[in-house]
């Protein structure tokens, strides 16, 4: 038979190991950078603005995020890959829409969390990191937060896998917890790269803690613990609203949603619970 193969060979597990390794390295780079920064910060902040911490925070977090992207991106099916630009657009546009309402939150992770819920933690992490990198085309100051955004995407995927989006009231709880972790991890970036925060409102909160004598990192971490959990709780809730508005056929396009029964009433064969009345 001379015609080219029309069907694909079965997937090989050989390349999967390398990618797993890259993902692990990326996660390690981010975790290691954070631990180093937290352990070394007391002497560093006195060392003045040119301290090595800024470079370590930047390079460690960025390298980690890039490794994550390199590891995850080739493994994603095209149907997920095509959704990533949509997610980034949602991050930017809905973020700006909410920003225009003078609400004291950022809400710039809606697309990231949406992908994480539909396609899993790895896709979520890559989307978060990519979001920061692409957004830095217009605003380079978001670039250092790539690791934090990746973490939120990953945590949202983990929450979805464990069924926290199956009950509507659990979504904000998951968001709150993810916000705590994300805020704490992003705080060193704000402290060491920016020497503060980029917004005026958040800056005022940091100033208040500083006036009580806190170190810069402590003050920013506390500020992050005030803003981020609320912000992410709202984002997770909005995403729950959005995914439940998607029609079944669209939701079930995503193997992750099917396999882990991420959303209520989307089992592979038969809707769970009150299935009798739904299909006839």
């Amino acid at each position: 038979m001379s015609s080219p193969a029309l069907s694909l060979p079965s997937p090989t597990p050989a390349t999967a190991r390398n990618r797993r390794l890259l993902e692990t390295l990326g996660a390690l780079a981010i975790a290691g950078t954070y631990i180093y920064l937290v352990l070394n910060q007391p002497e560093d902040i006195a060392g003045g603005p040119g301290s090595a911490s800024a470079l370590i925070a930047l390079s460690g977090f960025l390298v980690g995020a890039v490794l994550l992207i390199i590891g995850v991106l080739p493994t994603l099916p095209v149907s997920t890959l095509v959704l990533i630009p949509v997610a980034l657009v949602l991050n930017i546009v809905l973020g700006q829409f909410v920003g225009s309402t003078l609400v004291p939150f950022y809400l710039d992770a809606i697309g990231t969390v949406l992908i994480a819920v539909l396609a899993g933690p790895a896709a979520g992490a890559a989307t978060g990191a990519l979001s920061s990198i692409v957004w830095s085309f217009f605003n380079p100051t978001v670039l250092p937060f790539a690791a934090g955004a990746a973490l939120i995407g990953c945590l949202a995927g983990v929450a979805a896998r464990h069924g926290l989006f199956r009950r509507f009231y659990l979504a904000p709880v998951a968001g709150f917890l993810a916000g705590i972790i994300g805020g704490v991890v992003s705080a060193p970036v704000a402290a060491f790269v920016f020497g503060g925060t980029s917004g005026l409102a958040t800056g005022a909160i940091v100033s208040a803690f500083r006036s009580m004598g806190d170190t810069l990192l402590a003050a920013i971490t506390k500020q992050a613990l005030i803003s981020d959990p609320m912000d992410k709780a709202i984002v997770f809730t909005l995403v729950a609203v959005l995914v439940y508005a998607l029609p079944r056929r669209v939701r079930l396009q995503f193997p992750f949603v099917l396999r882990y029964r991420v959303l209520a009433g989307t089992s592979a064969s038969q809707p769970i619970g009150q299935s009798t009345g739904q299909d006839s």
Binding site: N139, F194, S198, L200, V206, S207, R210, D214
Partner: peptide, 20 residues
């Protein structure tokens, strides 16, 4: 849009509160 709030925030924060 990027730099004005950033610079103002830095000046206000460290100009007024710098315990060190």
């Amino acid at each position: 849009v990027i730099l004005v709030p950033l610079v103002l925030s830095l000046l206000a924060m460290h100009g007024l509160f710098f315990p060190e």
